[in-house]
Design a protein around this nucleic acid. Structure first.
Lengths: 351, 351
DNA sequence: CACCGTCATGGAATCGATTACACGGAGAAT
DNA sequence: ATTCTCCGTGTAATCGATTCCATGACGGTG
């Protein structure tokens, strides 16, 4: 592969001049520029990004470590991250942790070894020493969706509290009182927050959330299936199951079907994270939708702010309830979902 | 960030010795090794992969350019590619083309600029000059799923011909005779092949495939919706619609529902590419399943063979029919799907 | 005409690793 | 005792770019 030296030789100039032409430095004569450009495309020369990165100490690359690519929510997030990054002149390397802390660490390590300019993370756990170390060592970093409390890193996420209240209001209006939740791992913020938001919303109606109605899941379909089986085996099973992510809802649907029951007739189902398929399931699933695309864009912008020396901002965007048929038919219209979502931004790093 | 020089200074040896320790070169004294290792972890030293790549002219990184990350088929493919690559000591950089040739070119260009060791591509179109040039210039390359005829690059893909025959037999047994297909772009192999396989299978039953029954799609949900609307507007609409990928099937489902019709009562639906959600749609969708995971692994192995100088093999794995309820209830059992899938491999590059 | 500032250009250092080569010392072979 | 090997180690070149500094030409000004 042709190097800058070959171009210099072919154009009859020095490598310095070639470099100037390629980086559009002002002081190059039109004649030299023309000869260099000619040589460049007759040789099919492409600058070596590896060498350039070594010299300039920047790679114009962002790392994105997500918990599970197979989860459509994260896929969409990854896509919007890449899109925004590309628009701003950066590439993205995606690492899929598959909800496993050691794989997550593997990706963080290789990304840092490659000297990516910044790291976007949706942590699988409460924070491995490696990641905390990377943050402390000054790797520009931003958390998306999930975050680690007590670490000085900006967070871009969505607040589901209001939407969960809307959901509970909806369920209450339909006459449901025995409400259960399938939670995510307690070590993740989204795992614990969603349970808390649910518990608070229930309390407003004087409904309690007994331990038997809290299923312990891990954001994967299988765990949703097992938790649901356990609910169904109770002497007094819940009337509605709320899954803290879309894959566990899928598992719940499996379990309900396997038990020969029907949604919503025998039991209701709702999910956190809306996805296109929920429109087409039997029945369509009521879900809480995050502004995924905006989240991805905001995260990239925050990270690039941090990289380029501007003060990064934590961002919290509201989620909203999308009512469908999986919790029962509503006679009267459901409570209007918040339809004027307003972003709240703060300069505090950790909201 | 600490460099190899800092480690050398801290350990009281030369950089050469440090390098030898890190690359487990045999001739280093136990004493020196211990001092180096001590310095490495007291400094938290991590080798700079950029510098190493520049010197060794290899990045231990593979590029994967896929047509659409949001398509669950490609997501799964990407995941298995990354998994296998990681097991073999390589990283993967994913580029999402979103079915747009210019974005595809953008990714090919940046990946080549980064001097990735090899490229896995599922081309969006018939082959841009850039990609053909890269192949000819000797970038190790393997096509997955889709390929470009006439280019000397190994292909790892799945053959759906037999499964399509099974599907048509199934539909015929259910009494359906007016069968339509929503095709992908003719510029992609999977776009044209699936139509051809369908046409041939129909011919075996003396059924023809009129132009009005061929919808032109682009592998996106919207195009499936539009094609289906057009089918439904025909004076004699088809009895079954076969979508050439899962997203177009989703669009078809939308259009059918919007028209106030029911699947399979009013019209049947089948899809190429099986995904977990098809079990839960209303009704569950009959689909042709590719061995996606195996495809990804085989592609990585072929590419690494090529990179490491072994002769790479093209691989073709069979797809199989998964019968569900979206084409009508079967009284008698459907024809047995091929349940002993056998791989065919060849040393010819382009099958 | 002398001087100075500006501009185009090239030489060479540099980034952080790997590795060929040279060298000194210890132990084996004669 | 002398020579030969082999081993551990260091010096320095190298990969392909960017960029500081020096240089020479040229034009304008006093």
């Amino acid at each position: 592969m042709a190097s800058i030296k070959d171009v210099a030789a072919a154009a009859g100039v020095s490598v310095a001049t070639v470099s100037r032409v390629l980086n559009s430095h002002p002081s190059v004569s039109p004649d030299a520029r023309a000869r260099v450009l000619g040589a460049v495309d007759s040789l099919g020369y492409r600058p070596n990004a590896v060498a350039r990165s070594l010299r300039t100490a920047q790679t114009r690359t962002l790392g994105l470590v997500i918990s599970d690519v197979l989860n459509p929510y994260f896929t969409e997030l990854a896509r919007s991250v890449e899109e925004e990054a590309r628009a701003l002149g950066y590439s993205v390397i995606i690492g899929n942790a598959d909800e496993q802390p050691d794989i997550q660490d593997h990706h963080v390590r290789t990304l840092v070894d490659r000297r990516i300019d910044g790291l976007l993370v949706s942590p699988t756990d409460g924070g491995s020493p490696l990641m905390l170390e990377a943050a402390r060592a000054g790797t520009p970093m931003v958390f998306v969706d999930r975050w680690i409390p007590g670490v000085d890193v900006p967070v871009v996420r969505s607040d589901g509290r209001a939407a969960v209240r809307d959901l509970v209001a909806h369920l209450h209006a339909l006459g449901h009182r025995r409400l259960a939740i399938i939670a995510g791992p307690a070590a993740t913020t989204t795992g614990s927050e969603r349970v808390e938001a649910f518990r608070e919303a229930l309390a407003a109606y004087g409904i309690s959330l007994p331990d038997a109605y809290i299923g312990q899941g891990d954001f994967q379909a299988d765990s949703g299936r097992r938790a649901t089986e356990r609910f169904l085996a109770l002497s007094e099973p819940p009337e509605v199951v709320f899954a803290a992510d879309n894959l566990m809802a899928l598992g719940a649907l499996d379990a309900i079907r396997a038990a020969g029951l029907r949604v919503p007739h025998d039991i209701g189902l709702a999910a956190f994270d809306d996805i296109p398929w929920f429109v087409h399931t039997d029945p369509p699933v009521t879900a809480i939708a995050q502004p995924t695309k905006e989240l991805g864009r905001a995260a990239v912008r925050a990270l690039i702010d941090r990289i380029e020396g501007r003060p990064p901002q934590s961002v919290t965007l509201p989620a909203r309830l999308v009512v469908r048929r999986s919790c029962g038919e509503t006679k009267s219209p459901a409570p209007a979902p918040a339809d004027t979502p307003t972003a709240t931004t703060s300069t505090r790093r950790n909201p």
